[in-house]
């Protein structure tokens, strides 16, 4: 049997249709025999109706809101573009010098190695493999994870031997 206290704890949920079927049925039964709880339910229903009536008017969003959003977003984009432009202009002075150094170094390496194709280090291949298999966002994190797990498994292997 549901008490009035239990009933009133659940009345809001009942009125909103958020009770389980069992509780809903028990509450329905209690209310049909208890005038006090029935009055409490009516009070809550009346409040909901009052609130809905008070807010029944739907307003249109003023066009000025959209205009302000667009304007604000536009000036943000311009500021971002300005920053991007500035950071792009800064290295322009150094870029030719850096490119020259890289070019000289590259030619020297190529001449020195003769016809041998550039070699890729084994560590690089392993690292790339680890990055792809561990599906981590940072290759260093993946690399560290690889180092940790491989050393652990080495220990495990050592123990089993």
């Amino acid at each position: 049997m549901m008490t009035c206290h239990d009933c009133q704890e659940l009345l809001t949920d009942y009125q909103r249709g958020e009770l389980t079927a069992d509780n809903d049925a028990a509450l329905f039964e209690h209310i049909s025999t208890c005038p006090q709880c029935r009055a409490e339910l009516d009070g809550q229903t009346e409040l909901t109706a009052t609130l809905r009536a008070a807010f029944s008017q739907e307003l249109d969003m003023p066009a000025s809101v959209m205009a302000s959003v667009r304007q604000s977003v536009h000036s943000e984009r311009r500021a971002a573009f300005g920053n991007a432009l500035r950071s792009w202009l800064r290295p322009v002075v150094l870029a030719p010098a850096a490119a020259g150094i890289v070019l000289v170094a590259g030619v020297a390496t190529y001449v020195h190695n003769g016809s041998t194709p550039p070699r890729v280090s084994a560590e690089y291949l392993v690292r790339q493999h680890v990055v792809h298999t561990l599906n981590s966002q940072s290759s260093d994190r993946a690399w560290n994870a690889y180092l940790l797990t491989s050393s652990t498994s080495d220990d495990a292997n050592a123990k089993t031997k």
């Binding site: 307003l59 249109d60 969003m61 003023p62 000025s64 809101v65 959003v69 604000s72 977003v73 943000e76």
Partner: peptide, 28 residues
Amino acid sequence: YGRQTYNYAYRLAGNEADARDLTQEAFI
């Protein structure tokens, strides 16, 4: 969703000036 957002902001703030500011800031 502009209209619904504005109406919710209006109900929450209780006046149109604040509702405009809230809606604008929310979309930004």
